[in-house]
Computed example of a mutant assay.
Amino acid sequence: MELKAPAKVNWHLAVGRRRPDGYHPIASIFQTCSLNDIIEVEINEGPFSVEVSGLEEYCPKGRSTLDKAANLWHEIMGFDKEIRIQVKKNIPSQAGLGGGSSDAATLLRYLNSLEKHPLDTEHLINIGMKVGCDVPFFIEGCRAALVTGLGEVVRPIEPRTDLQGFILVTEGEKTSTKEAYDALDGRPMIPVLDDLDELERIYRLPVRDWSFRNDFDLVNTKPDIQLLKGERLLLTGSGSCHILLSDRSDIPTGSKLKAMKVYF
């Protein structure tokens, strides 16, 4: 079975104060885009095992989000078959695009569809949270949503379909998600998280009037690119990728900057 796992962007990402359990609450707008990982899943007779190929460049064998999702499904649901997964990785890693989370959510949704009595979305999200905090958005299966809590509270909204632009990938050292969150803990002032209705109101405005922010701008450097009138450059996730909202068909890039055309 061939499955598509879409990338996501964050138009807005506010991060609250670290909780006693070490996690941070957020207020965000997520939206998927036209960039996808391709996942080939083959299910064979058991006993249970999982083998993932295609991610050797990105993580140690057996440590991917797909491995974790498959093992959780075995432990929780008693799934006792062999799972073989081949990944064509198109979404940049450690980029704020949710590639690993999307891969895991896509696999969980597929495995759930094979069950005689599939789980409802709430219970599937509970499993997804054990893999990562972005997984619930992808499990929900919507194209755009207001996301709060640690990422598990997903309120789908009507997506904007008039947006297009580029994912800008900067070559070089990347900041891990943990390092990025640790850096935010040193902020002299932590703003109150945003009202969700207000975020959706802003989302409906022309892009030139957006007043969104990403708190991870604190630990990321913007790419050196000349913006044309009406264009917006926004960080996604905890970085390191930026989204250039633009009607251009292409943009000039150098050896340290890659541009990927996307639609929303």
Rank of each mutant, 00 (worst) to 15 (best):
A259K: 03
V15M: 10
I29N: 08
E82P: 00
K178A: 14
I76T: 12
P206L: 11
L119N: 04
K88M: 11
N71A: 02
L184H: 02
G230K: 10
I85N: 05
G239A: 06
E122L: 10
T221F: 07
D215L: 01
V207F: 06
V135C: 13
V262Y: 03
E82I: 07
V135A: 03
P191H: 05
C133S: 15
E173L: 13
T221K: 12
L234N: 13
G141P: 08
T253A: 04
D67L: 09
L218P: 02
F48R: 02
P191R: 05
N214Y: 11
L108P: 03
R248L: 08
I167F: 03
V131C: 15
R204K: 13
L35C: 03
K4F: 13
L111M: 02
D215K: 05
G172E: 12
N112F: 09
S53R: 15
L244K: 00
I139F: 14
G151P: 07
L184R: 01
K174T: 14
D162T: 01
G151L: 07
T177W: 09
N126K: 13
I243V: 14
K229Q: 14
H117E: 12
C241S: 11
D250A: 13
Y181V: 04
S238Q: 09
R208V: 14
F137Q: 11
K130S: 13
V169H: 11
E57G: 06
T253V: 15
R160W: 02
K61A: 10
N10R: 12
Q86I: 04
T221M: 06
I225P: 00
D217W: 09
A144T: 07
G96A: 12
L193A: 00
R84M: 08
G230V: 13
I83G: 05
A27C: 15
L35T: 08
P25T: 12
L114C: 02
K81N: 15
R213W: 08
L199C: 01
N126I: 06
D195Y: 02
K258A: 12
A104L: 03
T221L: 04
I243R: 01
S113E: 07
E42N: 12
D120T: 01
E173H: 12
G149R: 14
S49R: 15
I190C: 01
V131T: 10
E115K: 04
V50M: 08
P223I: 06
D80N: 15
R109Y: 06
Q164G: 06
H74K: 13
Q86Y: 13
H123T: 07
I76H: 02
L55S: 05
F216M: 09
T236E: 09
P25H: 01
K130E: 14
P25M: 07
P118M: 04
E200L: 06
